[in-house]
Design a protein around this nucleic acid. Structure first.
Lengths: 229, 229
DNA sequence: TGAATTTATTGATTTATGTCAGTTTCTTTA
DNA sequence: TAAAGAAACTGACATAAATCAATAAATTCA
């Protein structure tokens, strides 16, 4: 079962988030009192679409996948997030989550209740502006993903997923936590198609596959495949 | 050629945007001095992906389509926006646009230069919070679109596009401004596929097609098709 | 450790959807 | 108003990618 620790034991998790720098110590202390840390084991659901969720989720440690789900069990993984990222989702416009968050590794998530947070935002424009910029930047990443999904075919999509993952701050070893199904759901193609495309890339010596581990050999070639779609 | 009118002649275009309500008259006046209105004719490009763009775009009148483009000429129309909507895009994190905006009808767009705007945001947390909520709400719409594109097949996608359009504030008559290619690019399928699917819906008496005009007859059935994907 | 379960892989087949080519219908404008 | 061009449509065909089925490999855990 998940363990709730309160107050949060990750004292620096706010300071580590880029958009909290404009808060005074006093404000930081206030936010800290709102925090509630929860541990999740690999594979556990952190947040389910349709669930009541008035929280901002601050990843303290570990990696999560953020995805959308259909009523059949089709899924699309929008993004992977590691430490010091915040999942805002639709919490500023609704208390019902429209996405699902699952732990890819053991994870500690700090929950920040949104209402007092909004009060802080209203009081401190600099902070809110930084937050908005932060969200905007992440929007650009999602934009690139959207472009991949809507405008490319399998090879381009899989190349993009590989490049997306190796460029994450947490980097290369994330592959060990991802199943083939995960990769397929990131590329929005079938698992078999993903496997075959990875095999192709390996045969073409663009990547090296060892069990789940994937290492990029020819980054330029992957970028070219991404480019042509 | 486009006509630049400065200062902007649409005095109320700020007041009409929901997120400007928390500005004082003084602040509003300040923003008004930053505004530059530009007229575009139907079909003209308002903003091109890759172009330098340090502006927030405020739609004063008319309808625009916001889309992403590949290097080949494949396109995906993300959203349609009408009067009193603001296109923020990625302007808070980059001055190079990653999307293209095209006028679907004759359009007047107010350009707001971003830097002084950001200063205002930093000074007025209430305003910035409202703006962020506004963006978040629009994010939810995009979310629904993403869900449609990634998890459904043609019939579900086309049903979603129809429902999306008829639920826009500007409503039903937008269809008159949209080509079959536009509808296809909204559903992210080929034009021929879109045409055939629309024909199906018409044969099944779910919609009524008269030239470009589309009228929904059986909204529930469309919702059901949307539901099952 | 070994049985059970999940995950990965491969080949065969089907299918949804895209592409192409030709025709008709609209729209524009000279 | 006629001619030219663009958009809409239709049918035939090609193909990328999904699905199905069967096997192999890896993990889990009792």
């Amino acid at each position: 079962m998940n363990q709730t620790i309160k107050p949060c034991n990750c004292k620096d998790c706010l300071e580590r988030c880029e958009f909290f720098i404009r808060l005074s110590q006093e404000e930081l202390d206030k936010v800290n009192t709102l925090k509630e840390a929860v541990k999740y084991r690999k594979g556990e659901v952190i947040l389910k679409k349709g669930a009541y969720n008035p929280y901002l989720l601050l990843i303290s440690s570990g990696i999560v996948k953020v995805m959308i789900e259909a009523d059949n069990d089709k899924r699309f993984i929008m993004e992977l997030l590691g430490p010091h990222n915040m999942i805002t989702g639709n919490v500023f416009s609704s208390n019902v989550s429209n996405y699902t968050v699952v732990a890819l590794t053991d994870v500690v998530v700090c929950h920040l209740i949104v209402q007092p947070f909004i009060e802080l935002m209203e009081e401190n424009g600099r902070f809110t502006t930084d937050l908005l910029k932060y969200m905007n930047k992440h929007g650009s990443d999602r934009f690139r993903r959207l472009k991949s999904i809507t405008l490319k075919q399998s090879r381009g999509k899989v190349a993009d997923v590989i490049l997306y993952i190796v460029n994450l701050p947490t980097g290369n070893d994330i592959f060990k936590s991802l199943t083939r199904k995960d990769l397929a759901e990131m590329a929005n193609i079938s698992m078999e198609n993903a496997i075959r495309t990875l095999r192709e890339f390996a045969d073409e010596k663009l990547i090296l596959m060892d069990k789940k581990d994937i290492r990029v050999i020819d980054s330029d070639a992957l970028a070219r495949i991404s480019q042509i779609g």
